[in-house]
Simulated scan of single mutants.
Amino acid sequence: MRVAVTGTPGTGKTTATERLTGETVIHLNDVIREEGLYTERDSERDSLVADFDGIEDWLDEQQTTSPLVVESHLAHHFDADRVVVLRCHPEIMQERLQERGEPDAKAHENAEAEALDVILAETVDQHGEDHTYEIDTTDQNPAAVAHEIKHVILGEREPSVGEVNFVDFL
């Protein structure tokens, strides 16, 4: 089984998935860099342009007996049995991004994307509401978020979409 954990940068994906036990966790952004699974470097955004076909092929080659958890803001673009979309209030998320050194403009752009439900909408469009699990991380510690992700993996949580609303940020 493949579970994608996605969300706007700063929602807590890496921090939460590092606390999962019993699953194989792939931090996709690291794999993209380490395996050269990108087509170019976007110097304006200081980021890599992901090679989606190459990533899908690489993911298909990963064999595991435990659930495979793929973590990245891009994870929802790939095949998955379940997709967890981590959400965080844009103001908190923007602070997190700025604290880790992101430029103000990039942090604000991501905050607006979070308020507009961009990743949630893309996830529902690609995987459907029946395979999407929205988790608000705003007031939760990483262990609690990991616990909720674990419930999704085990099939102990119902799909949820549209329960989080940050339109007040706009």
Rank of each mutant, 00 (worst) to 15 (best):
V31D: 03
R33Y: 07
E35C: 06
E35L: 06
G36R: 08
L37R: 04
Y38V: 09
T39V: 10
E40I: 05
D42M: 12
D42I: 09
S43A: 15
S43Y: 15
E44G: 11
E44R: 11
R45K: 14
R45T: 06
D46Q: 11
D46N: 13
D46R: 09
S47A: 14
L48S: 07
L48R: 09
L48F: 10
D51H: 10
F52V: 00
F52H: 06
F52N: 01
F52E: 03
F52D: 06
G54E: 04
G54Y: 01
I55Q: 00
I55A: 00
I55S: 00
E56M: 00
D57C: 05
D57Q: 15
D57G: 07
W58H: 04
W58G: 00
D60Y: 02
D60P: 02
E61D: 14
E61I: 05
Q62L: 15
Q63L: 10
Q63Y: 06
Q63N: 09
Q63P: 00
T64C: 13
T64L: 10
T65G: 15
T65L: 12
S66F: 10
S66C: 12
P67G: 06
P67Q: 07
P67C: 07
V69M: 05
V69D: 02
V69L: 09
E71G: 02
E71C: 05
S72E: 04
S72G: 08
H73P: 02
H73T: 01
H73M: 06
L74H: 07
L74R: 03
L74W: 06
A75W: 01
A75V: 01
H77E: 08
H77W: 05
H77G: 03
F78K: 00
F78Q: 04
A80E: 02
A80N: 09
A80D: 04
D81Y: 05
D81N: 11
D81F: 04
R82H: 11
R82L: 06
R82C: 05
R82D: 07
V83K: 03
V83N: 00
V83R: 01
V83L: 02
V85P: 02
V85A: 07
L86F: 09
L86Y: 05
L86G: 06
L86D: 05
R87E: 12
C88I: 08
C88K: 15
H89E: 15
P90T: 11
E91D: 14
I92T: 13
I92H: 08
M93K: 09
Q94T: 14
E95Y: 05
E95V: 06
R96V: 12
R96A: 15
L97D: 13
Q98W: 03
Q98N: 12
Q98G: 13
R100L: 13
R100S: 14
R100C: 13
R100N: 12
G101Y: 10
E102A: 14
